[in-house]
Design a protein around this nucleic acid. Sequence first.
DNA 1: TTGAAAGCGCTAACAA
DNA 2: TTGTTAGCGCTTTCAA
Lengths: 349, 349
Amino acid sequence: MATIKEVARKAGVSVGTVSNVLRGASTVNNKIRERVNKVIRLLDYHPSHAARSLKTSRTHLLGMVISDITNPFFPQLARGAEDAAIEHGYLVIASNTDDQLEREKRVLAVLRSRRVDGILLVVAPNGGDMEHIRRVIASKIPVVCLDRVPEGLSVSAVTTDAITGSEMCMRHLISMGHCRIAIINGNSELQTARDRLQGYRNVLTEAGIAIDPELIMTGDFRANSGYLLAKQLLLSGLNPTALYVTNGMMALGALRAVKELGLRCPSDLALAVFDEVPGNGSFSPEVTSVIQPAYQIGYQGVELLLRQVESGEPSTPIQIRLPAELRIGESTLLRRAEPVVSNLSMNRM
Amino acid sequence: MATIKEVARKAGVSVGTVSNVLRGASTVNNKIRERVNKVIRLLDYHPSHAARSLKTSRTHLLGMVISDITNPFFPQLARGAEDAAIEHGYLVIASNTDDQLEREKRVLAVLRSRRVDGILLVVAPNGGDMEHIRRVIASKIPVVCLDRVPEGLSVSAVTTDAITGSEMCMRHLISMGHCRIAIINGNSELQTARDRLQGYRNVLTEAGIAIDPELIMTGDFRANSGYLLAKQLLLSGLNPTALYVTNGMMALGALRAVKELGLRCPSDLALAVFDEVPGNGSFSPEVTSVIQPAYQIGYQGVELLLRQVESGEPSTPIQIRLPAELRIGESTLLRRAEPVVSNLSMNRM
DNA sequence: TTGAAAGCGCTAACAA
DNA sequence: TTGTTAGCGCTTTCAA
């Protein structure tokens, strides 16, 4: 593989001049510039980024630590991040942690060795163990958290406004006459799960509906737990009239349970979901869902990160909350008896 | 950020010794090793990969060029690639081309500058323009193509055996009594599309059914084209009894069309799909589909690539074809009249 | 078993 | 406007 030296020799100039041509410096004579460029093409020369990094201590590399690209939320996010990175001349290295703290630690150490210029981080549940993240920040590598904000850590972040999103969805259900609404939520160690539950509670409270702990189920955000909990719930005799599932994978499981039990939405049960449901729109019923701005989270995450990278100094953490969108489908479009309470006006939706 | 020199000074040894400790060389005295390790932890030292690369001319970086991570086929593939890479101490840089040749060229140039040790490539349709790929190979960077094999290029590849997969699916449809089977396929500039169509033709021919060109529709592998073509087909008066859609996104579109027209599967129309259908299994009907080993394609692609990387020499191209799996769902489970021909025995399935 | 030093391919400061 | 050169942080010989 050709080096800058060879290019210089073959073009009959110094390496400094070649370097100037590469960097598009205007100080280079046009004839020389052309001669150099011709040699570059001839030798199929591609400057070594490693050497450049060593000198400039900039890698133009971003690390992206997510839980699992296979989870349908992340491809959009990853795409948004990539697109923004490319626009600024950066590349991104993605790693999956499967939400395991140990893997997060390992990955972060590797990214540090790689001297990435910044890190996008979807934190794994950590029970307060965040020393490894603190050390990354202490080492002057900017970090932007995506989707989840670790508690007790002062760090920039881009998230969905899950509380408001959850509230919109719950108000819709209540406006359709439901007052026995069950929720299947994820692990409450996760901020996101807590927020979604918070929205659920808020709206019930504001509607004057007592919160029934038996209607609150906790799964793990994966399809099978949605399936099991939905089945348990629907066979329990608790008779919810609506089911609110707080992510797409669990919703898939819940739908399977509904189908197996021979129930139909919305006639037997209303179903609403926080998050996109894979394949939604092509099947029956179309499921009412709260859509997260996944692409935007990735995109804006990179923009925020690069602002920190390129300013070169530890700016004060900025937290961006992006709104979610309620998309109403057939799965909730059947009105029950009027709400038992009336202090919930339509204009609050 | 600490350097090896600082570690050496603080530990009272030479940089060579620190280097030996880092590389786990056994020649280092235990006491010294411990002292060095303590300093490393103390300074939170992480060796610079750029410097190491410059010296060793190995980056332990792999490039992965795909069309779009947002297409549900790719997350699994990416995950397989990542997992295999991690196991061998490599990281992967992913880039999306959206199947655009120009972007593929740009990305490849960037990856060359990054001196990635190898490249996983899902080629964009190129109409024979493959000079950029040839030059990558000429520059001694091993390339493994995934999913698609560019015609006229001698390169290693890992693909799905789409012809056989397509045949399995078609034999199933025919065994269920269908003889007017329409196909909605993707752009035939893509190898994968041609293979899927090939399987369709093969089985019709072997069953002695005449191929009706009107039943062969060409879309672009995206949901909307599936929707439009399915609608056109179903309103055309051609009256197919079965519809074979050759990817998951178009299948989603086709399902929407079926739903809008008020038709039901399998009573009004049988539906089979090559590829995974997002959300399948949770809705009705469960769609019969040919599942591609996406994770394995990524995983084995990396293994194959690294074998070339680590052997250090241009081995002869190896092509791996992985089998697809036919998963039969309710969408085809209604028997029509017996097949008009009988030279199709069950054991050929 | 450890240390010294050359050099990987660039950039950037400085000299010419 | 172009050339020369030190040095980025490592690895790896070779000597001690």
